[in-house]
């Protein structure tokens, strides 16, 4: 089964360790390689990208490595790709035109 790595117990996202397809079930593991349970993906998520482990509301922080590295701009359900289509920086945003380019190049499903 494809694995997703949760870096810190406080994290609400895990990073995909291989490309995974929509509807696929992935195994979430800890840094110590312990199994933390399974999760179904709501859209395809490529290697290195993040899946939401818990639902986020707008303004909720995205926690990775135990630290807030962004905030939700819309509801992010569990199993959803947490990326430029639903997350923004806390300090310095990527320009909107670049975000659209990233969404187009990655083929991200925007709801």
């Amino acid at each position: 089964m494809i694995k997703a790595l949760r870096l810190n117990a406080a994290d609400n996202v895990a990073t995909l360790l291989e490309d995974a397809g929509k509807g696929e079930t992935v195994l979430v593991i800890s840094e110590q390689n312990e199994s933390l349970g399974e999760l179904e993906l709501l859209q395809a998520i490529p290697f290195g990208n993040k899946v939401a482990l818990r639902p986020m509301k707008p303004e909720d922080h995205l926690i990775k490595g135990g630290v807030a590295v962004g905030k939700a701009i819309k509801p992010v359900p569990q199993g959803q790709l947490a990326h430029v289509q639903n997350i923004r920086s806390l300090n310095l945003d990527i320009p909107e035109v670049m975000i659209n380019e990233i969404i187009a190049q990655m083929g991200i499903e925007v709801d």
Binding site: T15, K64, G65, G70, Q105
Partner: peptide, 23 residues
């Protein structure tokens, strides 16, 4: 400071990129 390539590779924000570097 952050490229489209960084984001396609999975980095969503400048904080995330910096934190990876700080690690």
């Amino acid at each position: 400071t952050m490229s489209v390539g960084n984001s396609i590779g999975g980095l969503t924000t400048i904080e995330e990129k910096s934190l990876g570097a700080l690690a």
